[in-house]
Structures are given as structure tokens and as C-alpha cells.
Design a protein around this nucleic acid. Sequence first.
DNA 1: TAGGATGATTGGTG
DNA 2: CACCAATCATCCTA
Length: 433
Amino acid sequence: MDEQSRMLQTLAGVNLAGHSVQGGMALPPPHGHDGADGDGRKQDIGDILHQIMTITDQSLDEAQAKKHALNCHRMKPALFSVLCEIKEKTGLSIRGAQEEDPPDPQLMRLDNMLLAEGVSGPEKGGGSAAAAAAAAASGGSSDNSIEHSDYRAKLTQIRQIYHTELEKYEQACNEFTTHVMNLLREQSRTRPISPKEIERMVGIIHRKFSSIQMQLKQSTCEAVMILRSRFLDARRKRRNFSKQATEILNEYFYSHLSNPYPSEEAKEELAKKCSITVSQVSNWFGNKRIRYKKNIGKFQEEANLYAAKTAVTAAHAVAAAVQNNQTNSPTTPNSGSSGSFNLPNSGDMFMNMQSLNGDSYQGAQVGANVQSQVDTLRHVINQTGGYNDGLGGNSLYSPHNLNANGGWQDATTPSSVTSPTEGPGSVHSDTSN
DNA sequence: TAGGATGATTGGTG
DNA sequence: CACCAATCATCCTA
């Protein structure tokens, strides 16, 4: 143990003793005398250390004055060199303890996500990928643009908040780092502080701030996730179909009440006509079948309404077809014998009626369905007698096609005469219910 | 604002 | 895989 270490130990002992004795008492007056003897020297050093220890208790001006006094003290160089030596020894362990900080995987994940969501990264077109994903997920309905602009607006809002906060954090981090560096530089006059140490301290500060940044990124990610789920969850953004679409679907449903299972082609056509997706058509029919079956009475009026509509349409169709027959050909292609609905194309009365009305259902064959339409018309007209007591169960669209189990009867077997539109041959459903 | 209407989802079935 | 039945979540209207 060298002379300086011994001195330090002595100093420490004096300091502790002095501190414990003096406690919170006022500082002793600064010593200006020349401590030639050992006791005086001890006292001197004790005072210095005491001043260091109590410096935090003092006011700023007082501290500055004391600091200045310390810096100017004749013992300062000696003390400084002692501290340098100690630092040199402990410095190794500090350097050894300095860990390389690899990129935080979680932070990387958050960064990637924010980039993917368009929150971070280039400003222009931010979130367009997410919006496109939203478009794909929502089935491409017509009001998507409104949804997307809303989504984008909210995303922009999040982005702005994120960037503002990030900027604030960075600014605060820089300010704090500068402040700490100034402090350290200032302190380096009294105690040995190497540039490496300052660097290390800056590193610590940056790590602390980056952990705050990570929290910011995390909460931003959460906000984006909530936004996404809100916009992508179809349940949340449920929109009623347009009146026209509902009309078209209902017309099909009630005109195929004996077997309300549209084929894949029919679904596609309906989807096109209603500007909805095929799966929406399937959903609609699924819901409609269930709800109709559950509460037939409730749907009676609706059924009658659409039956009347169908009747009018059918009348027009028949008139047109008959006229067509008279003027063009004595025989109707594909019409088959009376009562035969074995139409190769569709047998889909509704579809063909639509065609006759000038709509563009593909594959419709006017002549092929004359018989079916005539039958339909006949059924409808016959049924009008039951209209008055519709609620009595003898109405236009009695659910005679529902079997005992509550399911629709197998349409391949002749169904109830109350079926207004379809004969056995008209089955075209994609199901075997 | 309550309650019905309605589109979508989920779990089970054949 | 299509369908049923139940259920959810939102819309709409009195």
C-alpha cells in the first residue's frame, strides 16, 4: 500500500469521524492557514471531505462558492491524483462490466411493425398497405373508399402523435445528455472523468430513453392494432344491404321458396346484381332460411308481397313469351312436354324472368321457361284466394315445403302445390338438403 | 334509448 | 364444404 492510499484511508477515517460528530451542524470556516503539523493537515483534509459530503445540502450559490474554494485548495492536486489512481484501478472493472448491447429483438419487432403499418417510415402513402389489407378483408364492398379514408385518417392521427412524442423524447434525451455531459465536464475539474466514461454515461442515458421510446412504440402498436381490428372486424362495420339488393334477394328467395338454395352460379349472379360478395349472398340465404322457418307468420306479409310482384312479372313474361311464340316459332325449344321442368340450362324461374324483363342474367332462355312461368302464374293466381286469411296458414306461401324436421323438403320430390314457382324439374340447387 | 332487424361469425353435423 | 342453429355486434326505428 502506497503513501497516497494510506492517506486516503486516513482521510476516510477522519471524514467519517468528523461527519458523525458534526452531524448536520454548520460547516466549519474554511481553512486558510498553512497546516504544517500532522494534526493540522488531518483537520484540513477532513474539512475538504466534509465539504464534499455536504455539498448537496447547500444552496446552489453556496455550493458554487464551495466548489470554487475546493478547486483552489492547495490539497486539490494531491486529492485529484489519488482519485485518478483509484479510478485507474476500478476503471478496468467498469470497462469489463461494459456490455455490448445487441439490438433488442422486441424493439426490432416493434420497429418492423410500425414500418409495416406505415406509422414510421416514409410519410407518403403511409398505411396504404394496411388499407389494402383492410380492403381485401372486407370483401371489397362499394363503400370501402369511405372506410379507407376513415382508416387512413385515424392512422395519420396515430402517426402524427407518434412522431410528435418521438420528437419530444429525442429532444428531451438530447437536452438531458448535453446537460449531463456539461456536468461531467464541469466535474472533471474536481474528479477524474475520462471521455470514455462520459461516453458510457451517454450510453446509459440513451438506453434509458430508448426504453421509454419502446413504451411509446408499444402503445402506438397497440393503438394501430385496435384501429385495425375495428376496421377489419366485419362484425363491427356491418352495413345493411341496399334496399334494392334486399329486394332482389327477397324476390329470389320467395320465388324459390320450395327450395331456397341458389346454385353457385345463381349466387354469383345475385352477388353481381346486389353488389355484394357471394359469401354475403350465402350468409343472407342462410339467415333468411333460418329466420323464415323460425317465424313463418312474421314473413307472411312479405311473402305475399313478393308473390304479387312475381305474379305481375310472370304475367308480363308470359305475355311476352306467348307473343314471341306466336310470331316466331310454333314450337318452343327446350320446353318439353307439359309439366316438364327438366331444363338443361337452369330452370331458374326467377333468373329467367329477370332476363325477360330486360335484365342481363346470363344463360337465360326465354322460350325454355314459358311453361314454368305459365305454371307460376297459374299458381299465383290460384293462391290469391288464400290471401285474405293469410295469417290463417292458408296463405300464399305456406311453408308446405318445410318437412317435419323443420328443414326444406328435398326438392327433387314433388313439393306442395302451393309452391308458386317451381316444379320438380326446376331444382338447381347446389345442395342436397 | 330500448328493442327489433340484420349481417356476420362460430361450432357442430352430415 | 355447405348448411343449420345459436349468437354476436351493429344498425335502425319508434
